[in-house]
Simulated assay, not measured.
Amino acid sequence: AAALLAGDPFAISRVLERARGTSGEYLASALLLRAQRRATYLPHNEGHYALGASAYCHFTSPIRRYPDDVVHRALKAHLAGKDGGREQRAVERVLPQLCEACSSMERTADAAARDSQKVKMAELYEGRVGQVERGVVSGCERFGAFVSLDETCAEGLLPVRALGHEWYSYDEDRMALVGESTGTVWRLGQRVEVEVAGVDVARGQIDFRLPERPGR
Rank of each mutant, 00 (worst) to 15 (best):
S104F: 11
E100I: 14
R203H: 15
H48Q: 08
R174T: 01
D173T: 14
T60P: 01
E46N: 04
A111W: 00
A176F: 09
E212I: 13
D207Q: 01
M121C: 06
G135W: 03
Y49N: 05
D8V: 09
D8R: 08
V178S: 05
E46A: 08
S169Y: 14
E180S: 10
S23F: 06
A80D: 14
D115E: 09
V94W: 06
L124T: 11
D115M: 10
T60F: 13
S103T: 11
V71D: 02
V199E: 01
R86K: 02
A11I: 00
M175D: 04
D110L: 09
K118W: 10
G52T: 11
R38Q: 01
V132M: 14
V15L: 06
D200V: 12
A28L: 02
V192H: 01
E193M: 12
E126V: 02
F146I: 08
A11P: 06
R134S: 09
T40H: 00
T152D: 09
R209I: 03
V196Y: 05
R187P: 07
F208W: 05
V147Q: 02
L16D: 11
H78V: 10
D150A: 07
A112F: 07
R142W: 04
R73W: 14
D173R: 07
V136T: 09
V70M: 02
V137A: 08
T182A: 14
C57M: 14
D173I: 02
A154M: 03
M175W: 04
L33C: 13
S181A: 02
L27K: 04
E46P: 04
R216S: 00
V137S: 12
D83M: 09
D173K: 14
D68L: 00
P159G: 08
P214Y: 04
V94D: 02
A11L: 10
E100N: 14
G85Q: 07
A53N: 12
W186F: 13
R34A: 07
D207N: 15
V15S: 02
R93P: 12
L157P: 12
A77G: 03
V136P: 06
G179Y: 00
N45D: 06
E151S: 15
A39M: 11
R174H: 10
A122L: 02
R216D: 08
S116Y: 08
V137N: 00
Q97E: 15
G7A: 03
